[in-house]
Amino acid sequence: MTGDTHDHGHDHGDGPVLTYADDSVHDRNETGHFELLTDALKELSIEKGLVTATEVREYVEFFDSRGTEKGAEIIAKAWTDPAYKERLLADGTAAAAELDIPMAGAELVVVENTDDVHNVIVCTLCSCYPRTILGLPPDWYKSKSYRSRTVNEPRSVLKEFGTELPDGVALRVHDSNADMRYLVLPKRPAGTEDWPEERLRELVTRDSMIGVAPARDPA
C-alpha cells in the first residue's frame, strides 16, 4: 500500500455526494485503515476548529466511564418508589433528568415488565440505544441477526439468550429510532421485598433493561 493520492474521477458537484469512491476500496482493505481514517478525521476536525482535543478526550473518558450504572439507578428507584415509577412510565425523559441523566436530544420511553407482559427492545433500522443510560451497545445489539429477527420471531431470539417465556405472557417488541429510545423496567425479583435501593441495583443487568433476560436472581 502506498501513500499516493489517487484520482477521484467521479463528480462531486452534482447529486448526492454520499458514497466513498470505488477507487478507494483497496485502501479500505488495508489493515488499520479505519483507525487511520478516524485519526485523520479527528486531526482535521481539530485543525479546523470544529472540535478541540480536550473535548474529544473528555468524551472518550465519558464512554469509558459510562456503563449500566445509571440504568440500574433508575430501575432500583422505580422498584422502591411508586411515585417515581409512575413518573418514569409517564415521561421517561423527565424522570431520567430528575436523576441528572441526560437523554442528549432523544426521548426516553420506559416499558414495564409484569406477570402478563414482557418487553424487549431493538433498533431494526440502525442500532439506536439509550447510551447515556446504558453506555455503548453490545455487538449483538448491532448485529444484523438481532435487528432482523427480533421483530418477527422474538421468542426464539429470547431463547438464544436463555430466556423462555411462558405461553401466557404477551411479548411486546419496541423498535427504537434516532429520536426515541426505549428502556425496559424489569420485574423486581421475588425475595427482595426488604432490600434497600442500593442493594437492588446489583440485580439490574444491562440485558434485563434491554429485555432479553430477567433481572438477576437474588438467590
Binding site: E35, L41, V60, D64, L136, D139, W140, R147, R149
Partner: peptide, 26 residues
C-alpha cells in the same frame, strides 16, 4: 432489516477499540 431472515445471534462480547470511542467522540 426488520423481519428479514437471519442466522443465530453471535452473543460474544467484544472490547471496544480506542478508535471506536474516538470516532464516537468526534
Amino acid at each position: 432489516l426488520g423481519g428479514l431472515p437471519g442466522g443465530p445471534i453471535d452473543l460474544e462480547e467484544h472490547e471496544l477499540l480506542p478508535w471506536h470511542k474516538t470516532i464516537s467522540a468526534v
